[in-house]
Computed example of a mutant assay.
Amino acid sequence: MGFFCLFCGCVDQAGVGIVEKFGRFYKLANPGFHFFNPFAGECLAGVLSTRINSLDVKIETKTKDNVFVQLLCSIQYRVIKQRADDAFYELQNPKEQIQAYVFDVVRAQVPRMTLDDLFEQKGEVAKAVLEELEKVMGEYGFNIEHILMVDIIPDPSVRKAMNEINAAQRLQLASAYKGEADKILQVKRAEAEAESKYLGGVGVARQRQAITDGLRENILNFSGKVEGTSAKEVMDLIMVTQYFDTIKDLGNSSKNTTVFLPHGPGHIRDISDQIRNGMMEASASQVNSE
């Protein structure tokens, strides 16, 4: 903060000197070099820094909902240059005095709040501490610059319970979203399946209609070109031809091993009758539905 001897002294830029005369306060020494007359009883009693100082205070108290918490409060203060004599003579330990007032204000404010309110309104607590300290410490030559509530630390068991509650709420929300997503997926799957079945039915109906139209056209063409043939005979011929084509496809397929089918003129006629009757019934049902 500077140097001084019996006859002279130097005060740094960020400081203020306290000059005494015969043991009593005489004047303030501004930054710079000063001469003192020891024969007149003058001397430099001390130098105070006018820089901003920081004091961290940890306070343990209880909230309105009976939760013990620790508050870490940071107080930034400085000496008022014009009242440096009060700061030098009035308080022996200003840090302890500031800490005592912080304890008093915080323990008067926090028990009125729940834990959630304390987290939300910690600025209000800092404001109350600032107002009280400015009023009290200003009389002793100190100016309170800022009050910061750095941290609020609940009891470890309370923090664990809060984390579990938060995790449970998030899991519940995730389960609700997952259930809604599964519901939408099942509805869409059912709609897709219904649409698929509908389109499949339309395709089968159109296929059968096309087969019926093709057979009708073949029968008419064959009956017109070959004299003496009836529609029944042409139908039997087409059915038998399709029967042999089906046997051929079964034999050429690599996925089939052995297929037992009745074979003979009588069986072929029975099969042709069954196929014809089936086609006629399908055609009749299609006409009735239209």
Rank of each mutant, 00 (worst) to 15 (best):
C5F: 08
D12Q: 07
D12T: 05
A14P: 00
A14L: 03
G15Y: 05
V19H: 03
R24M: 04
R24S: 09
K27Q: 07
K27N: 08
P31G: 03
G32A: 05
F33W: 09
F35E: 10
E42R: 13
E42T: 01
C43M: 08
C43S: 11
L44E: 00
L44K: 00
L44Y: 06
A45M: 07
G46K: 00
G46F: 09
V47Q: 04
R51M: 05
I52D: 09
K58M: 10
I59T: 08
K62S: 03
K64T: 02
D65P: 02
D65Q: 05
V67N: 01
F68T: 09
C73S: 09
C73L: 07
I75G: 06
Q76N: 05
Y77D: 00
Y77I: 04
A84V: 02
D85M: 02
D85S: 10
E90R: 02
L91S: 02
L91H: 02
P94D: 09
P94S: 06
K95Y: 12
E96K: 10
Y101I: 15
V102T: 11
F103T: 04
D104Q: 13
R107Y: 07
Q109A: 14
P111W: 05
P111D: 03
R112C: 07
T114L: 15
L115E: 01
F119Q: 07
F119A: 01
Q121K: 15
K122L: 02
G123N: 06
E124Y: 03
E124N: 10
V125G: 02
A126S: 15
M137K: 01
E139R: 09
E139Y: 03
Y140H: 06
F142V: 00
N143S: 13
E145A: 14
H146R: 15
H146S: 12
H146F: 10
I147F: 05
M149Y: 04
P154G: 04
P156M: 01
K160Y: 06
N163D: 14
E164Y: 09
I165A: 14
I165K: 15
A167I: 09
L173K: 10
L173Y: 13
K178H: 12
G179K: 13
K183I: 05
I184E: 08
L185T: 05
A192K: 00
E195W: 03
E195R: 10
S196E: 10
Y198C: 05
L199Q: 08
G201D: 08
Q207V: 03
I211L: 15
D213G: 04
D213T: 01
L215S: 02
N218D: 12
I219A: 04
N221L: 13
N221A: 12
F222C: 12
G224V: 02
G224E: 15
K225N: 00
K225L: 10
E227I: 01
L237Q: 06
I238P: 11
D245L: 12
D245V: 08
T246S: 10
T246L: 15
K248C: 02
K248Q: 07
K248P: 00
D249Q: 14
L250K: 04
T257L: 06
V259H: 08
F260Y: 13
L261Q: 08
L261H: 10
G264H: 15
G266T: 09
G266K: 12
H267A: 09
S272H: 04
R276S: 13
S283V: 06
S283N: 14
S283Y: 06
N288C: 07
E290V: 14
